[in-house]
Structures are given as structure tokens and as C-alpha cells.
Design a protein around this nucleic acid. Structure first.
Lengths: 221, 221
DNA sequence: CGACAAGTTGATGTTACTCAAAAGTGGTGG
DNA sequence: CCACCACTTTTGAGTAACATCAACTTGTCG
């Protein structure tokens, strides 16, 4: 499950640490917070199973989901002295976590900390992409772009393929993620399906015509 | 100028390093890239003078400005083995940079690396806030929120006060930053001024009624 | 079967975009 | 000092994208 760590070559020692961490797994129920805004940060954790999201709630009830987390993702680790959570991270489905193993400096361990650094860099890239989506793409493009990105993330950790995977979020949640309303997401999903690009039905996403999808979102990456 | 480093207590050794780095300052002309997307990252740098921005260009010409950088900001440092720039960073005005001094491990130097970590955490917080702005705020709120945030950032490095500062960006650039069009930014700025909240004229921003501004953006932070 | 959440549909309203042109602004060179 | 240029700001009229409100339908699970 933690084939996330295929990001960098891990030596035997690293693998041992990762396996040991797996034994310390904890679970969080849906809608429960993994990390509440403003609280001191605990140790970094790895998401093993389930979906989680980082969100921000406005005083009047509007909600923005900043980032969706899937298995293999690294959760929040502040590098400075008094780190506090900048946002709330909540479990969406049932979630299991394990503490991220601490790389052993000196002896080996390069691979592991390298994997963490890469993982953080990927999350940063996703944030940049999210800003571009919200700022400059139409609803149609936003949905297409996000679904394809997510498919690739899932495929990279072995959950389905890039054109056929399970995606449990409700349309309402997708709306809060992409800065839309649930109603509009529904209509646009239908349009995307009518156009023969994508089928989103229940939990399943099927990419019907990858080539044309990529034409639409012309490498926004 | 590098009072940015008031973020964490710096000892004498740190101060010496910072001063030494100042002597290595380089300058970049307006509209020139400081860092081009995809290129290997050079050493981290500190922005001493002028404004810069991180942006992404879509194939059809649309542009999203992801983040605006003001003096005191830390520029791009990847922590993994083969870091490449995720986005382009360009100078907006004339800009001067200096290499970020490398903290001396072992002897002192805690303060400096602490300041870097904090600086990165602040940038991450700004990205989260930017996502929320684009996804869930109206044009009116976006502009107000961003102007106030920027005023505080400038004041914190001694460039004007939080209610009276210099801001050289054109309305077109603000539009690309906030996911709007130049025309609309213009109209909304006028509305904000008519409502007696803010005056933006030429390079100068004046907060006319801080209390009511904060009512509007009710601590979105 | 009944209840509740999620998805779907239609009618209408609002925000922000588009296109086009006028009016200011600052810098340059004659 | 003025004329000219490019750029930015401003204004108006029409339009498109997305939101809102309010039903209604379709699961799903006990």
C-alpha cells in the first residue's frame, strides 16, 4: 500500500522502517477531523486507506476544499519550531493512517527523506494547479482537469488505472473543491458525458476518450 | 531591508551572514524571468527590492498569477535531489536579489533556518488563502482581502503602514492574480472606493475604513 | 417499506465577461 | 516645451457562465 515510496529508491533499512510504521496504524471515522486548524502539529503521517481533504470554512458557511488526499499522501509536517495547522484536515471516508517513519540520518535513510521531499513538492505542484483551475478555467475545464489529475494520482499508487477508477466524492464536495455549486457540477458532468469524454456514475469514473480530454485541457498541468 | 529576518531571533553569526549576502546582490529587469519553469533550481534567494510574481501561462494565452512576492520574501528552494522549478517567477519591477545565506549547522545558525522555515510556512498559508479567495469569494471580497493581506505583508517589512502603502501593480495584473478581468477589477475598485473602504489610485493604496473592511472579509485569513 | 442523502430538472437572477471605444498617464525625442 | 507614442484606466452596452430557489427523482440502507 505504501508504494508511494516508489518515488525514490529505498534501501532495506528504509523498507524495514516503513513496514514497522504500518503496525502503528490508526483509523479515523468519516467526517472526523484528522487535524484541526490552529492546533499544534503532531508528527507527520501517511494516509494508508481512504480519502481525506484539507478545507477552510468561512464564517458565513461557505466552504472551500483546498486539496483532496488519497492513499499514499503525506499529511502535514511543519519544519519550524512552533508549527500549527494552517487548515483543518478531515477524513471523508473511513481513513487509516500511520506515523511517517523518521529517516535515520547517518546510516542510509537518504531514500526515505528524499521520498518525503518529493511528496511535498508534488503537493505544492497540486496547489499551484488548483489555483490555476479556480482562477482561469471554466467549470467544464476545471472538472475535467481535476478528474484526470486525480485518476493519475490514484493509478500511481495502484488504485485503478488512469482511465478507470473509484472516486467516492459527492458532487457537492466536488463543487466545494472547484469553486462551483453542486447543481452546476451536476449539469456540467452531464455535458461532459454527452460529449463522450468522461463517465462519472456512482463511485466510478471512466475516461471514455482520453485524447479529446487532453485536447480540452491542453496540458494545463 | 532584510528585516524579514525579524521572524526569529538571529544571533551575531546569523547577522554577519545576512550582511555578507547583501554584498552579493544581483538585479533583474522588469518582465525578465528570475526562474523559468522546468529549469533546475539554483540556490534559494531573498528578494531585497521590488516586486516579483509566480505565474502560469495557459496554451491559449490565459494567465494565472499564483503569488505575488514583495521584499523580504524567500524565493524557491527545493529540498529534494533533482529540484526543478514548478512555475515561472518573473520580475515585475526592477528587482534586486541576494543568495540566501546558508545557516551554519553546529555553531549557532538555528535562528536563520528557523526564519526560513517560518517564511515557507507563511507562503503556504498565503497559497491556501489564495485558493479560498478564488474559489469562494466574490470579486469585491477578493480584491479587498488581497489588498489588505498585501498591506500587512508590506508593513511587516517596513514598506509603508498597513493602511497606507505603495502598490505598483496594474489592474490587469491584479485581474490575472484574482481570476478576473481588468475591466471588472476597475469597476469593483470604484465600488469599493464609493463605499468608502479603500482608495487605490496610481501606486498608492489607502485604507479608508479598516473596521468596515474587516467586516466585509470577516476573518477569511 | 420508509427515510434520508444524493442526484436531477426547470425557471429565473446575478455576477462577471466580452467587445469596443474614449479618456487619462507618463516617457521620449524633436 | 510640445507632439507623439504606448500603456493604463475608464465607460457603455450586450452576453455568457454560473448561482439560486424549489421541486422532483433516484438510490441506499436499516
Amino acid at each position: 500500500m505504501r508504494r508511494l515510496s516508489a518515488l525514490a529508491p529505498l534501501d532495506d533499512e528504509d523498507c524495514r522502517l516503513v513496514r514497522a510504521a504500518g503496525d502503528l496504524a490508526t483509523t479515523v471515522a468519516p467526517r472526523r477531523d484528522i487535524l484541526a486548524k490552529g492546533l499544534p502539529l503532531p508528527r507527520a503521517q501517511i494516509l494508508l486507506h481512504g480519502w481525506a481533504y484539507r478545507s477552510r470554512l468561512l464564517p458565513d458557511g461557505r466552504r472551500q476544499i483546498l486539496h483532496v488526499m488519497v492513499p499514499g499522501d503525506l499529511i502535514a509536517a511543519g519544519a519550524h519550531a512552533n508549527p500549527r495547522a494552517l487548515t483543518t484536515i478531515s477524513a471523508y471516508t473511513n481513513v487509516t493512517l500511520c506515523p511517517a517513519p523518521v529517516p535515520q540520518m547517518g546510516q542510509s535513510g537518504e531514500g526515505l527523506s528524499e521520498a518525503y521531499a518529493l511528496s511535498r513538492a508534488m503537493e505544492e505542484a497540486q496547489l499551484f494547479r488548483q489555483i490555476t483551475r479556480l482562477g482561469r478555467l471554466t467549470a467544464y475545464e476545471r472538472i475535467l482537469d481535476w478528474v484526470l489529475e486525480t485518476g493519475e494520482r490514484l493509478a500511481s499508487v495502484g488504485l485503478g488505472t488512469a482511465s478507470d477508477f473509484r472516486m467516492p466524492l459527492t458532487q457537492e464536495v466536488i463543487a466545494d473543491l472547484l469553486g462551483l455549486t453542486g447543481v452546476h457540477v451536476n449539469r456540467v458532468l452531464q455535458a461532459i458525458w454527452r460529449d463522450g469524454l468522461l463517465r462519472v456514475h456512482g463511485n466510478m469514473v471512466t475516461v471514455l476518450d482520453r485524447k479529446r480530454c487532453e485536447d480540452v485541457i491542453g496540458s494545463f498541468s
